[in-house]
Design a protein around this nucleic acid. Structure first.
Lengths: 248, 248
DNA sequence: TTCTGTGAACGGTTTCACAGCC
DNA sequence: GGCTGTGAAACCGTTCACAGAA
């Protein structure tokens, strides 16, 4: 799973990237698109690292996994690097995504323009509530969840977003997997059980806040202590230029 | 920053937890609340680990950082453990949260009930658009962002959620920090620069999908290969019981 | 000379395996 | 006997520091 470049899954076209690197490539991609818009055609590791909010050693190590990508003494070619990253991430064609659950959050996600501009196309909306089926959102009709297998097949959907209440999420996940979906982004606050070969990522808003709460708690405890025992120049978590990753 | 228990920030009431542990405590908390609702009053490490989607060795190691929490031969007392985790996370009182940006996503977040049930209270809504100021959402009035300092002070707000477009996010972050906010959850797809002592966590929907896209890409490349070279019993990422963390 | 690419050192996290307590 | 708590080992990720290409 690590750097071995000669294993069965390795090879020049499919470098076996560390997960931490995979999670950062999208950030580099976003920064690169920004740089391209601003007219840069090359960028140094230092410059790109700053734009992406990481340090340059990490960035160079990450990019080195993709093979020779930069030019020593010069830097990286912006458009070339964009192509290489998009290639590796499988973003050379727009992937069709299904969204299940068009409640409060689902509505917002259905209307989110960021999907469209960054490699994805919301191809279908689903809900279990017959009262919502037939509703038009952003040019798409909400379909009943029973139509999943048919639509997933028709639209070649392999990625789905779950934005249902927690109690429905496992059931929805089961039906998605059954219909052939192999990647799920779960917004429902619960654990999903899926078979091997299916990837799940989750976003839980309350968990993010609770992690922040921990640090708040600790900061306020620190300021309550006599200043003498505090480490110099350090209050709570030091936060070098660019915030902290959600991806521990 | 690691296990040293005797440093200035350590001490029995403020264990210096590893970040990876902090990120999982909220998951345990959620699972424990579920167990409590179902009438369990004790749970084994095995049982709680399954409910939270991790393995039991990790769970025990995590909980060991909180001090003696379980009983050998028996397991963990559910309500006691809930109390201990809430204590450590600083969830003994409801923290007031400000939400900036009441567009598409902001609206949905403002209406999300999960905040209320898991230790937070949305105490104020802000927007820069005068056309939106005055609007009522879920019992709260949208205020203009110029009122930030006043309201942050009045409501003792230390945590804010940014749900603005990317181009406005840095400006909003600066004003939040200026007003005294020390933790930010950023939904805008951009890097935020904040001073030391301010924590930032980010959620970027497109990035999550792009990470899934990478794995999809790799899975389809694998199935295209002759079966003989695939590692036995393994297609893409093995995904043991419960999905994968977003938080690396 | 400049800036990438990378071995080596380091630190944090996970897993293992079992000692210790109920 | 059962289950927690924990050293030790294995693993992964980050940082350092510099060799080497342009």
């Amino acid at each position: 799973m690590s750097q071995q470049r000669t294993g069965p899954t390795g090879g020049p076209d499919f470098p076996d990237l560390p997960e931490a690197t995979v999670a950062r490539l999208p950030e580099y991609l976003r920064a690169l698109h920004h740089l391209a818009e601003d007219g840069h055609d090359t960028v140094s590791s230092e410059g790109l690292a700053a734009a992406a909010g990481v340090n340059s050693a990490k960035l160079r190590k990450d990019l080195s996994h993709l093979g020779r990508t930069g030019t020593r003494g010069v830097g990286y070619d912006v458009t070339l690097l964009i192509d290489q990253i998009e290639q590796v991430l499988g973003l050379t064609h727009r992937r069709a995504v299904a969204l299940v659950g068009v409640g409060n959050l689902g509505h917002a996600l259905a209307g989110y323009a960021g999907f469209g501009t960054r490699g994805f196309r919301i191809a279908a909306l689903f809900d279990a509530d017959h009262g919502r089926v037939g509703e038009h959102i952003n040019g798409l009709v909400v379909r009943h969840i029973d139509d999943l297998p048919e639509v997933v097949e028709q639209e070649s959907i392999s990625i789905a977003v779950i934005a249902t209440p927690a109690h429905a999420a496992q059931h929805v996940a089961d039906r998605l997997v059954e219909a052939g979906v192999t990647s799920v982004l779960n917004f429902a606050p619960c654990v999903l059980n899926v078979p091997d070969g299916v990837d799940v990522r989750k976003v839980d808003l309350a968990i993010e806040l609770q992690i922040l709460s921990f640090h708040e708690h600790r900061k306020s405890a620190l300021t309550a202590l006599p200043a003498a025992v505090q480490k110099p120049g350090r209050v709570g978590m030091a936060n070098r230029l660019g915030g902290e990753a959600v991806a521990t």
